[in-house]
Simulated scan of single mutants.
Amino acid sequence: MPALRALKPAALTVATGLAGVLVGFWANAAFFPGTSPRQPIEFSHKIHATDNAIPCLYCHTQARRSTVAGVPSVRKCVDCHNIVAKDRPQIRKVMSYWANQQPIPWIKVHDLPDFVYFPHKRHVQAGVACQTCHGKVETMHRVKRVAPLKMGWCLDCHKAHAVEHGLDCWTCHK
């Protein structure tokens, strides 16, 4: 049918455009500010960090000595929740992970590409507050990304605070 052959390029164009829009929405949700995935446990930083005044580094202990801040082990949660609020549904979920000796499968909100080297420890030891990059997490019931965390954003911060690395950017980025 010659009439249908004439429609084939238009149909392919529409299908490609639709696929592009879907990929665009996915990329926007995955890589840009405002991203706030549903987590396996409805963990509220507001309850823990603001209402109960638990400092970031109490749970994210690796941040002061590692490139990654890390997420707390289920054991860290159980240490308190063996006693506190143990009858709440979300705490029962935590206890289920503990009983099954499974880590909680948290979904990364601040996930940088694998080729990016970002040393949390250098920033923490230099006195950079967690909120500088992560926003006011202590007020969030569900963590969301508030900054793009792109190279230009980081460089702007370093320029604003006169951070010197002893290297010119062009040493690596020619």
Results as ranks from 00 to 15, higher is better:
148 P>F: 02
93 K>I: 04
140 M>Q: 14
145 R>P: 00
35 T>D: 09
68 V>G: 11
101 Q>Y: 03
85 A>Y: 09
82 N>F: 09
122 R>G: 06
94 V>F: 02
90 Q>H: 09
128 V>H: 00
120 H>P: 01
167 L>E: 12
58 Y>G: 00
56 C>R: 00
63 A>K: 06
9 P>V: 04
55 P>S: 09
58 Y>W: 04
121 K>Y: 15
127 G>P: 08
45 H>C: 15
118 F>L: 15
158 H>S: 06
125 Q>M: 12
139 T>L: 13
111 D>L: 11
84 V>R: 08
134 H>Q: 02
90 Q>N: 14
40 P>V: 04
48 H>F: 13
12 L>I: 13
80 C>L: 05
88 R>D: 12
16 T>W: 11
21 V>L: 14
63 A>S: 15
54 I>S: 03
157 C>T: 02
124 V>Y: 08
51 D>N: 14
60 H>K: 10
93 K>Y: 03
93 K>D: 05
155 L>W: 11
158 H>I: 04
126 A>W: 00
88 R>Y: 12
33 P>V: 01
64 R>G: 08
132 T>D: 02
36 S>E: 14
160 A>K: 13
79 D>E: 15
125 Q>E: 07
125 Q>G: 00
172 C>I: 13
52 N>Q: 14
39 Q>Y: 13
145 R>D: 01
64 R>E: 08
148 P>E: 09
100 N>F: 00
161 H>D: 05
82 N>C: 03
170 W>E: 11
28 N>Q: 09
57 L>S: 12
54 I>F: 07
147 A>N: 13
102 Q>R: 14
168 D>E: 13
158 H>D: 04
58 Y>Q: 12
113 P>H: 10
128 V>W: 05
10 A>K: 07
46 K>F: 15
143 V>Q: 01
37 P>H: 04
52 N>I: 05
146 V>W: 01
87 D>M: 06
63 A>D: 08
1 M>Y: 08
75 R>G: 09
84 V>L: 10
38 R>V: 12
